[in-house]
Simulated assay, not measured.
Amino acid sequence: MYTHKFVSSIDEVSPHDWQALCTDNLFCSYSWLSALEHSGCVSKDTGWKPHHLLIYQDAVLVAILPGYLKSHSYGEYVFDWSWAEAYQRYGLKYYPKWLCGVPFTPVTGQRILCKELTLALTEYILTTLKHGCQQTAWSGAHINFLTEQLTPNRNFMTRYGVQFHWQNNDYVDFADFLSALTSRRRKMIKKERQQAVNSGLHIRWLSAGEIDDVMLEHFYQCYQNTYIKRSGHQGYLNFTFFKLILSTLPESVRLCAAFEGPQLVAASLYLCDKHTLYGRYWGALEDYQTLHFELCYYQGIEYAIKHKLNNFDAGAQGEHKLTRGFKPVVTYSLHHIANPMFSAAISDFIQREHRHIEQYIEQCTLVLPFKQQ
């Protein structure tokens, strides 16, 4: 028999119990999510109030859904602003909503943390979320960036998205990767890499143990500077968060940094697990020609090849990744909308959107740079 409860802090679950269900899921790990909470990056004040769902079977914890009550839609990367605007036009409240996902992190992965996701457990979880919407003021319940589709449930809609990931085809080195591309794209990439070299900057890969407080502060300045230039506001993550993950996830953190003399002037922060390299946070003090491509893409590809990693996820969006060897991959999210009228309208929207995404993926494959598609 299943039972459940919601908790308002990850501290209400022991790290041992959390990790026993999370296994090697980096971004849903206790270390990553607790760093977000303990740094204050996620809280009621930031619009990410922790509200994790715990599932028990005969009083034994068998599943966890990292969850948050949202008062806005920032930092999710599954965009539902038009849904919120439609609610507003009808004088209804779209917020709060309940979201299962990793704040500020559009990385696909296990979202229902459990040892075995059975049909019975899936049904209980989705029914619990539906009832949660009925019993509270939530407009809906959402699960973002699942590894794959769950068993179809009539109360939840599956929404599809597209990202661009690089996949390792057992390349020996970067030159071997380039040999798989058309001549035109090889020349483009070589030219961009040479421009980065011509900047006169020295590029180094650093492990967590090599990143001292001064270097971390310089990276953080780069991160905030670029965020403000791009979006007009500061980045979602604070210095305390980055400091915490250096100490709690040292085996996973890597920094690809560019130095002008002894001074760090640009950097891309990566994380890695056994199979995948994740490019997450980029920043620079000034604009350097093609340096973004070098630190965020080409250096990452080289690292993945050298360390025999299967995949390289360089972040959300970015069609320019296609011509640099990143292929389109499908992402999944699940959505329950409590209001029947809006549920029907959004379901129709998602179906039409899915057809467009299928066509979009076909178009993307036509511009891939590989000699043999």
Score class of each variant (00 low, 15 high):
R184K: 15
F156L: 04
K308Y: 02
G140L: 04
H354W: 03
P106I: 10
W205G: 00
E302G: 13
G315C: 09
E358M: 10
A196L: 12
T158S: 12
C133G: 04
I361E: 04
L246S: 03
S29G: 11
K5H: 14
A59G: 00
L36T: 04
T248V: 13
Y270S: 05
A316L: 11
S82V: 02
L277E: 00
T226G: 10
C28E: 02
S333T: 05
Q317M: 13
Q194H: 14
I305V: 10
R184L: 04
W81M: 11
F342N: 08
D80F: 01
L277C: 05
W166E: 00
G232E: 12
Y281V: 00
G91T: 10
A86V: 07
S231H: 15
G318F: 02
L150E: 03
A314Y: 05
I10R: 05
A284Y: 07
A258F: 09
P340M: 06
H356R: 13
G75D: 09
Y223F: 13
S333G: 14
E302C: 12
K321G: 02
S139A: 12
Q363L: 10
I228N: 06
N153S: 13
L237E: 08
Q359R: 13
D273H: 07
L92M: 14
T23P: 00
F219H: 02
D11C: 08
L181T: 08
G140D: 06
H335P: 06
S73M: 09
T118L: 09
F312L: 03
L309W: 08
D176M: 02
N198F: 03
L121Q: 10
I10M: 11
V330K: 15
Y303E: 06
Q194P: 00
Y360V: 07
R352N: 13
Q221T: 11
V330H: 08
S347H: 10
R355N: 09
S34E: 07
L99H: 05
I245P: 02
L322M: 10
Y77P: 03
T105C: 04
A267T: 10
K70F: 09
P340C: 04
